[in-house]
């Protein structure tokens, strides 16, 4: 039963997404501007770390190119999240204008509807940029990843984007009680900036926060530590998976609770 359901969603997803891209393509210039802006933003960030850390050969045990690798990983996870999970930004609007009704009338999970409804192609810009940066860093560090590590890398990136997504969904769920939440979502987005740098360079409290409260560090710092062979403690490799599982569970439960509180809009 559950498998059948999953298969149903897997078949439906590409169809929905292609429809959404099709309708989005009627605004072509918007799309290219988006890709450009996204790549530019990431590029500027890169220039920033390059400028800041140029004179510093290493910081709290992290060399320049190791930091670059963390930066790249964060860019990939964030880009994937932006690309695949853009729909979470629409929740507030759906709740406010009552169009969430529509999602509830469909024979599909509401989270699926939200996800299938929107993708932001420009997120790909960020993913490609992150990938390029990571490869450059690996070359400079003279590191060749084993096949196992490459597989782990893929899993870690998926987990990382799921963590961003879950946190976004938790924020979006608040819109079932509070009318305008986009500012709080932007705030949480800004917290994700911290993941672009190894959390080892931060204050202890911030490290705990980024690990246990909003577990963004599992999208970049921890898996990077493992991939670069700097850390061997299990939290660096199993952590991202556990954190993603926990985040998705919390988000899904909270979402379910929130949708039960939906009040619709008059009409």
């Amino acid at each position: 039963m559950a498998v059948k359901r999953l298969w149903f969603y897997i078949k439906l997803y590409p169809y929905f997404v292609s429809r959404s891209i099709q309708s989005r393509m009627s605004y072509k210039s918007d799309f290219f501007l988006g890709v450009g802006a996204s790549a530019l933003m990431q590029g500027l960030g890169y220039v920033f770390i390059w400028a800041v850390f140029q004179g510093i050969p290493e910081m709290n045990g992290w060399s320049f190119y190791q930091m670059v690798f963390v930066y790249g990983m964060a860019a990939i996870s964030l880009g994937l999240n932006e690309f695949l999970f853009a729909g979470s930004w629409n929740v507030g609007k759906h709740v406010r204008d009552g169009s969430f009704d529509r999602l509830l009338l469909r024979p599909m999970g509401t989270l699926f509807s939200i996800l299938a409804e929107d993708v932001a192609l420009h997120g790909i810009g960020s993913v490609l940029f992150g990938l390029a940066v990571c490869i450059v860093a690996l070359c400079r560090l003279h590191l060749a990843l084993s096949l196992g590590k490459i597989l782990f890398w893929i899993v870690a990136m998926a987990c990382g984007s799921l963590i961003f997504f879950s946190v976004n969904i938790v924020c979006a769920t608040v819109s079932f009680w509070v009318t305008d939440i986009s500012s709080s979502m932007v705030m949480v987005q800004n917290v994700s900036e911290f993941t672009k740098y190894p959390i080892a360079i931060y204050d202890r409290k911030l490290q705990v926060f980024l690990t246990y409260v909003i577990p963004f560090a599992f999208s970049s710092y921890y898996p990077a530590g493992f991939l670069l062979g700097m850390e061997s403690s299990p939290i660096y490799w199993i952590g991202p998976i556990l954190a993603a599982a926990a985040a998705v569970t919390v988000a899904a439960l909270f979402w379910r609770y929130g949708t039960g509180k939906y009040q619709s809009a008059g009409g």
């Binding site: 429809r19 099709q22 009627s26 009338l105 469909r106 999970g109 009409g267």
Partner: peptide
């Protein structure tokens, strides 16, 4: 909800159930 959605159809004259751009 999901099983119920398979059994019912609904039209709300004030709001659209359709996809705006399709």
């Amino acid at each position: 909800r999901i099983q119920n959605a398979m059994n019912i159809g609904a039209v709300f004259g004030q709001k659209t159930q359709l996809w705006w751009d399709l």
